[in-house]
Deep mutational scan, measured.
Amino acid sequence: MFKRLMMVALLVIAPLSAATAADQTNPYKLMDEAAQKTFDRLKNEQPQIRANPDYLRTIVDQELLPYVQVKYAGALVLGQYYKSATPAQREAYFAAFREYLKQAYGQALAMYHGQTYQIAPEQPLGDKTIVPIRVTIIDPNGRPPVRLDFQWRKNSQTGNWQAYDMIAEGVSMITTKQNEWGTLLRTKGIDGLTAQLKSISQQKITLEEKK
């Protein structure tokens, strides 16, 4: 169930391209415009997507990853294993993690069937560096609404905000991946996880038929 919630949630996290980005210092504006741009692209490019579902990787690479804190999220997933990894191991892992996100997020976007969304009203940021933004996803086919909290983090150097995690039903996506990959990290280390991520990233994206 959580895996499905995570995939549905990713439908609204794909941010804007650099040329049309919203105010990078306001995570609420980023979330709002990102959702609108993403849904528009999914709707307008269905012919290309249906002809070649792996085209979704391109959308992810162009529109999402430049505005997601990939390395920060990847380091959180590694936890204690990050500090013990060599620079070469980290570089290989982050490259594999990025390719994994292209496949995983692309597969999530393949679930698009006309969903709509509501974003919580903007709250004062103050001096906060981590801000959760509640998004409610509404399914046109009558499924119950899904309420999610996207975690946005302020870059201490640039002042810009980027998304790095999502919490559904009190469970963090980062925590879920830590639990899912924990045994592999304990037995085969970061190299074993890197190899698995490379394998997963090679899987073809498949479209979910409308139910």
Rank of each mutant, 00 (worst) to 15 (best):
residue 2 F to L: 13
residue 3 K to G: 01
residue 4 R to M: 15
residue 4 R to A: 12
residue 4 R to S: 13
residue 4 R to Q: 15
residue 5 L to M: 06
residue 5 L to G: 01
residue 6 M to A: 03
residue 7 M to Y: 07
residue 7 M to W: 07
residue 8 V to E: 00
residue 9 A to W: 13
residue 10 L to F: 10
residue 10 L to K: 01
residue 11 L to Y: 02
residue 11 L to H: 01
residue 12 V to S: 04
residue 12 V to M: 13
residue 12 V to H: 04
residue 12 V to L: 14
residue 12 V to P: 01
residue 13 I to C: 12
residue 14 A to L: 15
residue 14 A to P: 07
residue 15 P to W: 05
residue 15 P to A: 05
residue 16 L to K: 04
residue 17 S to P: 09
residue 18 A to L: 15
residue 18 A to P: 14
residue 19 A to S: 10
residue 19 A to V: 11
residue 19 A to Q: 04
residue 20 T to A: 14
residue 20 T to D: 10
residue 21 A to C: 07
residue 21 A to R: 10
residue 21 A to V: 10
residue 21 A to F: 07
residue 21 A to D: 07
residue 22 A to P: 09
residue 22 A to Y: 14
residue 23 D to T: 10
residue 25 T to I: 09
residue 25 T to Q: 06
residue 25 T to C: 09
residue 26 N to C: 08
residue 26 N to T: 06
residue 26 N to Q: 10
residue 26 N to Y: 07
residue 26 N to E: 06
residue 26 N to F: 08
residue 27 P to E: 04
residue 27 P to Q: 06
residue 27 P to F: 03
residue 28 Y to Q: 08
residue 29 K to A: 14
residue 29 K to T: 12
residue 29 K to F: 14
residue 30 L to V: 05
residue 30 L to E: 11
residue 30 L to M: 12
residue 30 L to P: 07
residue 30 L to G: 14
residue 31 M to T: 03
residue 31 M to K: 02
residue 32 D to W: 08
residue 33 E to Y: 04
residue 34 A to I: 05
residue 34 A to T: 09
residue 35 A to R: 02
residue 36 Q to A: 10
residue 37 K to W: 07
residue 38 T to V: 12
residue 38 T to A: 06
residue 39 F to M: 01
residue 39 F to W: 02
residue 39 F to Y: 02
residue 40 D to G: 15
residue 40 D to V: 12
residue 41 R to S: 07
residue 41 R to W: 03
residue 41 R to N: 05
residue 41 R to H: 05
residue 42 L to K: 03
residue 42 L to F: 12
residue 42 L to V: 14
residue 42 L to P: 04
residue 43 K to P: 05
residue 43 K to W: 07
residue 43 K to R: 12
residue 44 N to S: 13
residue 44 N to W: 10
residue 46 Q to N: 09
residue 46 Q to A: 04
residue 46 Q to F: 06
residue 47 P to K: 10
residue 47 P to M: 10
residue 48 Q to M: 11
residue 49 I to E: 05
residue 49 I to G: 06
residue 50 R to I: 09
residue 51 A to C: 12
residue 51 A to W: 08
residue 51 A to R: 10
residue 51 A to M: 10
residue 52 N to D: 11
residue 53 P to A: 13
residue 53 P to C: 11
residue 55 Y to T: 12
residue 55 Y to N: 13
residue 56 L to I: 12
residue 56 L to P: 08
residue 56 L to N: 08
residue 57 R to D: 10
residue 57 R to M: 11
residue 57 R to Y: 14
residue 59 I to N: 06
residue 59 I to P: 04
residue 59 I to L: 07
residue 61 D to V: 05
residue 61 D to M: 06
residue 62 Q to H: 11
residue 62 Q to K: 11
residue 62 Q to W: 05
residue 63 E to Y: 02
residue 63 E to A: 05
residue 63 E to I: 02
residue 64 L to Y: 09
residue 64 L to C: 02
residue 65 L to A: 06
residue 65 L to W: 12
residue 65 L to P: 02
residue 66 P to L: 04
residue 66 P to E: 10
residue 67 Y to N: 03
residue 68 V to N: 09
residue 68 V to L: 15
residue 69 Q to C: 03
residue 72 Y to N: 05
residue 72 Y to V: 01
residue 73 A to I: 03
residue 74 G to M: 04
residue 74 G to E: 01
residue 75 A to P: 01
residue 76 L to V: 13
residue 76 L to P: 02
residue 78 L to M: 12
residue 78 L to V: 08
residue 78 L to S: 03
residue 78 L to F: 03
residue 79 G to C: 05
residue 79 G to N: 03
residue 79 G to T: 03
residue 80 Q to C: 03
residue 80 Q to R: 12
residue 80 Q to Y: 14
residue 81 Y to N: 13
residue 81 Y to C: 04
residue 82 Y to W: 09
residue 83 K to A: 07
residue 83 K to Y: 01
residue 83 K to H: 04
residue 83 K to V: 06
residue 83 K to I: 06
residue 85 A to N: 05
residue 87 P to A: 10
residue 88 A to P: 14
residue 88 A to C: 12
residue 88 A to G: 13
residue 89 Q to D: 15
residue 89 Q to M: 07
residue 89 Q to F: 04
residue 89 Q to S: 11
residue 90 R to L: 05
residue 91 E to T: 10
residue 91 E to N: 14
residue 92 A to L: 13
residue 92 A to Y: 13
residue 92 A to C: 14
residue 92 A to V: 13
residue 93 Y to N: 05
residue 93 Y to E: 03
residue 94 F to P: 05
residue 94 F to A: 05
residue 95 A to V: 12
residue 95 A to D: 10
residue 95 A to I: 10
residue 96 A to I: 15
residue 96 A to R: 06
residue 96 A to D: 12
residue 96 A to T: 12
residue 97 F to H: 14
residue 98 R to S: 12
residue 98 R to M: 10
residue 99 E to A: 10
residue 99 E to V: 15
residue 99 E to R: 06
residue 101 L to Y: 07
residue 101 L to H: 11
residue 104 A to C: 13
residue 104 A to P: 03
residue 105 Y to M: 02
residue 106 G to I: 04
residue 106 G to H: 03
residue 106 G to T: 09
residue 106 G to P: 07
residue 107 Q to F: 12
residue 107 Q to G: 11
residue 107 Q to E: 08
residue 109 L to D: 03
residue 110 A to P: 15
residue 110 A to N: 15
residue 111 M to Q: 04
residue 111 M to W: 05
residue 111 M to V: 12
residue 112 Y to T: 05
residue 112 Y to A: 02
residue 113 H to S: 08
residue 114 G to S: 06
residue 114 G to D: 09
residue 114 G to W: 06
residue 115 Q to S: 03
residue 115 Q to A: 03
residue 115 Q to T: 02
residue 117 Y to D: 04
residue 117 Y to P: 05
residue 118 Q to H: 14
residue 118 Q to A: 02
residue 118 Q to K: 14
residue 120 A to D: 06
residue 120 A to G: 15
residue 120 A to H: 15
residue 120 A to T: 13
residue 120 A to M: 15
residue 121 P to H: 11
residue 122 E to I: 09
residue 123 Q to C: 05
residue 123 Q to T: 12
residue 123 Q to H: 07
residue 124 P to T: 13
residue 124 P to S: 12
residue 125 L to N: 13
residue 125 L to G: 15
residue 125 L to I: 07
residue 126 G to F: 11
residue 126 G to N: 08
residue 127 D to E: 08
residue 127 D to S: 07
residue 128 K to N: 06
residue 128 K to S: 14
residue 130 I to K: 04
residue 130 I to E: 05
residue 131 V to Q: 03
residue 131 V to H: 13
residue 132 P to F: 11
residue 133 I to G: 02
residue 134 R to C: 00
residue 134 R to Y: 01
residue 134 R to F: 01
residue 134 R to W: 02
residue 135 V to G: 02
residue 136 T to G: 14
residue 137 I to N: 15
residue 137 I to V: 14
residue 137 I to W: 07
residue 139 D to Q: 14
residue 139 D to N: 07
residue 139 D to K: 15
residue 140 P to Y: 14
residue 141 N to R: 07
residue 141 N to A: 00
residue 141 N to Y: 08
residue 142 G to Y: 08
residue 142 G to N: 06
residue 143 R to S: 11
residue 144 P to T: 06
residue 145 P to G: 08
residue 145 P to N: 04
residue 145 P to R: 08
residue 146 V to I: 01
residue 146 V to G: 03
residue 147 R to I: 05
residue 148 L to A: 00
residue 151 Q to C: 03
residue 151 Q to E: 07
residue 152 W to S: 02
residue 152 W to T: 03
residue 153 R to V: 00
residue 153 R to P: 00
residue 154 K to E: 03
residue 154 K to G: 07
residue 154 K to P: 08
residue 155 N to S: 02
residue 155 N to R: 01
residue 156 S to R: 04
residue 156 S to K: 03
residue 156 S to L: 03
residue 157 Q to V: 05
residue 158 T to L: 07
residue 158 T to S: 09
residue 158 T to A: 01
residue 158 T to D: 07
residue 159 G to K: 14
residue 160 N to A: 00
residue 161 W to N: 06
residue 161 W to F: 02
residue 162 Q to H: 03
residue 162 Q to P: 11
residue 163 A to E: 02
residue 163 A to N: 07
residue 163 A to F: 12
residue 165 D to V: 00
residue 166 M to R: 04
residue 166 M to V: 04
residue 166 M to P: 01
residue 168 A to Y: 13
residue 168 A to F: 14
residue 169 E to R: 03
residue 170 G to C: 00
residue 172 S to M: 02
residue 172 S to K: 00
residue 172 S to I: 02
residue 172 S to R: 12
residue 172 S to Y: 03
residue 173 M to F: 00
residue 174 I to T: 13
residue 174 I to S: 02
residue 174 I to D: 12
residue 175 T to A: 00
residue 175 T to C: 02
residue 176 T to N: 06
residue 176 T to I: 00
residue 177 K to V: 07
residue 177 K to Q: 13
residue 177 K to E: 08
residue 178 Q to Y: 04
residue 178 Q to E: 02
residue 179 N to H: 04
residue 179 N to R: 10
residue 180 E to N: 02
residue 180 E to W: 06
residue 180 E to V: 00
residue 180 E to S: 00
residue 181 W to T: 15
residue 181 W to F: 00
residue 181 W to K: 15
residue 182 G to A: 02
residue 183 T to D: 10
residue 183 T to L: 05
residue 184 L to M: 07
residue 184 L to C: 12
residue 185 L to I: 15
residue 185 L to M: 09
residue 186 R to N: 05
residue 186 R to Y: 01
residue 186 R to T: 01
residue 186 R to C: 00
residue 186 R to G: 04
residue 187 T to I: 10
residue 188 K to W: 08
residue 188 K to Y: 08
residue 189 G to F: 03
residue 189 G to A: 01
residue 189 G to L: 02
residue 189 G to H: 00
residue 190 I to Q: 05
residue 190 I to E: 04
residue 192 G to D: 14
residue 193 L to F: 07
residue 193 L to Y: 12
residue 195 A to V: 14
residue 196 Q to C: 08
residue 196 Q to Y: 10
residue 197 L to Q: 04
residue 197 L to S: 04
residue 197 L to E: 07
residue 198 K to M: 10
residue 198 K to L: 08
residue 199 S to L: 12
residue 199 S to R: 11
residue 200 I to H: 11
residue 201 S to N: 14
residue 201 S to M: 15
residue 201 S to C: 15
residue 202 Q to S: 12
residue 202 Q to T: 10
residue 203 Q to M: 10
residue 203 Q to N: 10
residue 205 I to L: 15
residue 205 I to K: 15
residue 206 T to C: 12
residue 206 T to Q: 15
residue 208 E to P: 14
residue 208 E to C: 11
residue 208 E to A: 14
residue 208 E to T: 14
residue 209 E to Q: 13
residue 210 K to F: 13
residue 210 K to E: 07
